[in-house]
Write a protein that binds this DNA or RNA. Structure first.
Lengths: 116, 116
DNA sequence: TTGACATATTCCCATATAGGAATATATAGT
DNA sequence: ACTATATATTCCTATATGGGAATATGTCAA
C-alpha cells in the first residue's frame, strides 16, 4: 500500500507546509487566489492545487465574487487535530516537571559537594 | 518535487493513522515492540518501520532492556502541532458563535411569523 | 464577439512511501 | 557453539504525490 492521499483527512492535508501557510493567511479573512500567489510566492497553479486539497477535506470554504474566488479558513476542520494533540498535554507537562526536578536535584548535589 | 518525507517533521510523521495509534498507546507508558504488534494487529516489520519514522522525528524514545526495546512517547515533540492548531482556536470559537446567532435569529423569525 | 483577467485542470516526472516477504542483527539461555 | 526470541533492515511494487509547463474554463468590459 502507498501513502494515504493528502485529501484523505485533515492530518494528511496539513502535513504540507505551504498548505499550513495558506491556512494561516486565510485565517485573517477571506482572500482571492491572487493574494496567496503574491504572499506565498508560489505559481498560481500550485496555489490552486493546494486550495483544492484543502477544500476537499473542508479546511477552507469558497465563494465567488465576479472573477475572483474568495477563500477562507474553516477553523472547525482543524479542531480534531487540536483535540488529538491535546490528549498529550498532560504528558508533556509531567515530563517537563521531571526534567525540572532532575535539574534541581543535580544543582543541589553539586552545591553539597562544593559546600562539603 | 515529490511529497515531503514522513521523517521531515512531526506533521508528516503523524499524518499516518497507525503512527498516531502507536503514539496513543505509548503515551500510557513504555512498551516493547511486541506489545504494539499485538495491540495494533500489524506485522512486526511494519511496526518497526513506523517506530523508526517516529524515532527519526523525536516523537518516541527508546531504551534497551535485554532483548526488548522499550519505546515511549515523547510528548514534547507533539507540542508544536498543538501550538499551531491552537492559533485557530479563537477563530472556531467565533465561527461557532456566528452559527449559533444565526440559528437563534432564524428561530426568532419563524416564531414571529407563527405568532403574527 | 473579442480581449483581458482570474482561476482551475491536465500532463509530465522524480521521489517517497506502506505493507508483504525474506533476511539480518542482537541478546539470552544452555 | 547453537537455538530460540525480539527487533530491525532490505527488496519489491502499486500508488500518490508537488511543482513546472501548457491549456482549459469562467467572467467581466467594450
Amino acid at each position: 500500500m502507498a501513502r494515504a492521499a493528502t485529501t484523505s483527512d485533515a492530518f494528511n492535508a496539513v502535513a504540507e507546509p505551504r498548505r499550513r501557510e495558506i491556512l494561516d493567511y486565510l485565517a485573517l479573512g477571506e482572500r482571492p487566489v491572487g493574494d496567496l500567489v503574491v504572499k506565498l510566492r508560489l505559481e498560481q497553479p500550485s496555489v490552486s492545487k493546494h486550495l483544492r486539497v484543502l477544500r476537499d477535506v473542508g479546511l477552507v470554504r469558497v465563494r465567488r465574487n465576479g472573477r475572483h474566488m474568495l477563500y477562507r479558513t474553516n477553523a472547525e476542520a482543524i479542531r480534531p487535530l487540536h483535540e488529538w494533540t491535546k490528549t498529550f498535554e498532560r504528558l508533556w507537562a509531567h515530563q517537563l516537571l521531571r526534567i525540572k526536578e532532575r535539574a534541581e536535584e543535580k544543582a543541589r548535589k553539586a552545591d553539597e559537594e562544593h559546600g562539603g
